[in-house]
Design a protein around this nucleic acid. Sequence first.
DNA 1: GGTTACATTTAGATCGGTCCAAATCAATCG
DNA 2: CGATTGATTTGGACCGATCTAAATGTAACC
Lengths: 350, 350
Amino acid sequence: MPQHTLIRRKITLNDIAASCGVSRATVSLVLRGSPLVNKHTRARIEEDLRQQGYVYNRAAANLRRRTSSSIALVLNDLGNPFFAEFAAGVDEALGQAEFVTLLGSTGESSARQQTVLGSLVEHGPGGIILSPAEGSDAEEVLSAIGPQMPLLLFNREPGGPRPASSHWDLLALDNQNGGRLATEHLIALGHRGIAFFGGHADSSSCRQRRAGYVEAMQAAGLDIPADLQIECMPTRTEAAHRCEALFAGAHRPTAAVCYNDAVALGLMLGLRQHGRQPGRDFALTGFDDIAEAALSLPSLTTLCTDPRARGRQAAGMILHRLADPLAPATHTVAPVQLVVRASSCPPPFN
Amino acid sequence: MPQHTLIRRKITLNDIAASCGVSRATVSLVLRGSPLVNKHTRARIEEDLRQQGYVYNRAAANLRRRTSSSIALVLNDLGNPFFAEFAAGVDEALGQAEFVTLLGSTGESSARQQTVLGSLVEHGPGGIILSPAEGSDAEEVLSAIGPQMPLLLFNREPGGPRPASSHWDLLALDNQNGGRLATEHLIALGHRGIAFFGGHADSSSCRQRRAGYVEAMQAAGLDIPADLQIECMPTRTEAAHRCEALFAGAHRPTAAVCYNDAVALGLMLGLRQHGRQPGRDFALTGFDDIAEAALSLPSLTTLCTDPRARGRQAAGMILHRLADPLAPATHTVAPVQLVVRASSCPPPFN
DNA sequence: GGTTACATTTAGATCGGTCCAAATCAATCG
DNA sequence: CGATTGATTTGGACCGATCTAAATGTAACC
């Protein structure tokens, strides 16, 4: 039996108007729930809309109204659970405000970031939430999105001087405070030789976390040997490899503040391979509180940044700016919270 | 010093046309790289476009051309790294095809899925990639997106009868084959008592994986004792708790095929707590090849599904359908690949 | 010179909505 | 009864692009 699929043109306002014997304008008023239209007319039209399976064409409406109902979300690494959670939060909050999320991911390439931004801008988002790719520059971002586009920077700032004319908002994590909290916690447990492990100094978030560590160490009158400042790529495998650097120098640390959870989990691996049991022979902390942190063995003491909540917050901030494009630029620092788990043990001979 | 921000209207085709002393049509031809327009005119116009910082309004163009340059991506759980990677792959491939991704996440709620689909459809995507929320129904999906909308189902099918008139494509993982491969691998190592561990029978993917296990066991003439089919929530902690069920019955298994990596990692934990060393006293396999699988101790033998590649594939499939809306529905099963690591050891007395 | 051929440009309708000012209509008022 | 009022409805321009068919300009041909 041959299947006969009826190919219908899409139903528009005109079709409804014609079939109801009213004008386009009236139907439009019904769609927008205007109180101007008569009760009976409204009922009749609404019925017809349902029957014919009408779907609203928001693009057409936006064109005429010179509005937008979308926000672009451009992330440097969607594969990272931290950003995935963030995206989920953004989308959740935008959805509630009847906005839609235009996604773009750059894979940490600033060239790709330019392309992605350019393409997204053509789709006319009301604003952009951007977590800049590493090595991207403020000037080039400006040239990609133009001076008028509302922009919220998340997590880090692009390099280079901030263009004068643009008022961009910023949502950052309280990295310095986080670094300080973790360090103070270890000091309170009795540790004296504490390393800062992982990350790169050219990342602003790493610099800030380390600054917090330095602050706490100095406040406690502890010294900060250069051979206990160990850089590495913020990945598990790299961290595992760099483990030995911890014990290569003259100072034998009993604890480490790690750049983030990935690094901390990698370091745990490395410690085991060197015959030390993390959480018993050596204490460490992470940063981010990714899902695995609670499940690892030992469970990881870390700083909770609640990326999903950050996403909702970011969405709120960009919507705020849409409502008031001339407001002065905002610079928000989101609090982080120390979550104490098993990985931060007292020093061995305490 | 008061900052004076010049608020300029957005530049349109008309502005460029006027400032160049040509018609809108000519500028439009230049934008689309038509060979019709004179070399000098083109150069002059292109210069002007650049100078004035013109940005193309794709929405307006799409309206007139009755085309779309976006694809909606609706996921049941963006927080899950598997889907996040998938999304990254989708976006990557769509971007290359000059399409933009409209994101929506449903958090496994079919009610929310309806809302999200409804909202996205109004933005006029060319098609939809949907990983259905648990408990969502084919009929309701149909009513949300209409019969005309190209749809690619990923990972699972919505419940209820498939609506007759719609030709929806499907991209699934080869769960059954994966289950079979893992089981055959264990059998080849010499195991005879092999359990299937974790997951719930009401999940289609779990049923399929177990079917592969059963297939391999039967082909080898091994029996499949009911007390070695152990269900549990697909989480690490649950899996750790259910470990003892493996050894409670009369049959003492020497190996287990686990529903997925999370379960396998949890089971490793449980085994250790019961004094058995996974990868030496007991063999096990996972499914998904999440990042941790390679890094755990022992490293985990598992099935690689390459979610990023699946994402690219899904994007390709939906674009294909856009190009040919009347083609018959596709039902693609993506291959999975056995990755042998340390967790699958031979049985103890072999 | 008039015609044809070709290259280039353009006027004006159109996509599917929204907006505005004006039209329609019934009811109320002086 | 004509005028005023308030409630509804509407024609037509408009958003920023594309499309078609026709107009324009120039060089080549008989």
